[in-house]
Structures are given as structure tokens and as C-alpha cells.
Amino acid sequence: MSNDLKYASKNIKLLLKYKNWTQKDLCKKTGITKITMRRRLNSKIPKWSMLEAASVADAFNLSVSDIFFKKMKLTS
């Protein structure tokens, strides 16, 4: 399963940059603590719970599938 989530951290960092949000902003929107968020985003093998994934997807108004299972490319 960990390999399935290989895009999560990069996609979330990309979305943060696109929205001009900090990790702290995302934490406020999701209820995930700063320490947990940092661990998830910087881990080689991230372990996101379904609740965390759903919260992140909600914050960005995207589906869990889009963020966690597909490689994103943002175009301007």
C-alpha cells in the first residue's frame, strides 16, 4: 500500500505552492497537527489514514484519488 501513496507528498507540496499555503495553513484546515503533517510529507513511506486523506482532499476541494493515487501536474 505504501507504494500506492508515492504521489501523495509531492502532490500535496505542489498544491500548497499553487494555493500559496503553508503546512500550517493546511493543518488549520484539516485538524492534522503540525508534527503529524511534517512527518507525513517528509516520510519516504507515508502512512496516511483515511480520515487524514479525506481531510486533505476536502481542504483542497479535490478527491482523495486525485491527490493520493495520481501524479499531478499543475499548468498555468
Results as ranks from 00 to 15, higher is better:
59 A>L: 01
58 D>F: 07
55 S>V: 07
26 L>K: 01
49 S>H: 13
45 I>Q: 14
18 Y>M: 00
7 Y>Q: 05
50 M>L: 15
64 V>M: 10
9 S>W: 06
32 I>C: 11
29 K>A: 14
15 L>I: 05
60 F>Y: 08
31 G>N: 11
21 W>L: 09
11 N>Y: 02
23 Q>I: 13
58 D>I: 01
11 N>V: 08
28 K>Y: 07
41 L>G: 03
7 Y>S: 08
56 V>T: 05
63 S>K: 10
65 S>A: 12
59 A>S: 06
59 A>Y: 02
36 T>Y: 06
7 Y>N: 12
36 T>K: 11
27 C>I: 04
65 S>W: 08
21 W>M: 08
29 K>H: 11
25 D>E: 14
27 C>D: 06
11 N>M: 09
54 A>S: 14
52 E>T: 04
33 T>A: 07
43 S>A: 15
27 C>M: 05
57 A>Q: 09
11 N>S: 08
42 N>S: 14
37 M>H: 07
63 S>M: 01
63 S>Y: 02
34 K>G: 12
59 A>G: 02
22 T>Y: 09
31 G>V: 09
43 S>M: 00
21 W>P: 01
7 Y>P: 09
54 A>R: 13
9 S>F: 07
12 I>Q: 01
20 N>D: 15
17 K>C: 02
48 W>E: 08
61 N>M: 05
21 W>K: 11
12 I>S: 02
21 W>E: 09
9 S>E: 12
40 R>D: 00
55 S>N: 15
46 P>E: 07
28 K>G: 01
